[in-house]
């Protein structure tokens, strides 16, 4: 799949102070730069090198990804939520393209 389409899953509602799991999945070839095509030419590296998550504008999680990460990478992480708000997710490509998505959570 050529176009990066992210999927994010987290609970819609949580209690104050809850630790929740956030699961993310994005379609991406994660071309490692180690492979050659049928003509023997190296296929240039094209991976998502950085994953970042913010909550209400504050960074809560980030990960550097490397060429050995498989295609269509899945990343899950845990966060404690104290207030209602919006998670913002950003996947940064080698070429600088940033794919973004958001998800809301209500804290009762």
């Amino acid at each position: 799949m050529a176009i990066a389409t992210p999927r994010v899953r987290l609970p819609a509602i949580a209690k104050k102070g809850d630790i929740i799991e956030i699961k993310t999945l994005i379609s991406h070839d994660m071309e490692s730069g180690q492979r050659r095509d049928s003509a023997g030419v190296v296929v240039p590296r094209k991976i998502i090198k950085l994953f970042e998550a913010q909550f209400n504008g504050r960074p809560v999680f980030s990960a550097d990804w490397n060429p050995s990460v498989s295609a269509n990478p899945y990343q899950s992480f845990f966060a404690r939520v104290e207030e209602s708000g919006t998670f913002e997710f950003a996947w940064t490509d080698d070429d600088g393209t940033v794919t973004k998505t958001t998800a809301k959570i209500t804290v009762a």
Binding site: M1, T5, R7, R9, L25, S27, N72, Y74
Partner: peptide, 10 residues
């Protein structure tokens, strides 16, 4: 949410 096949389903 972990099954990459759902990228195609979507």
């Amino acid at each position: 949410s972990a099954n990459p096949g759902f990228l195609w389903v979507r």
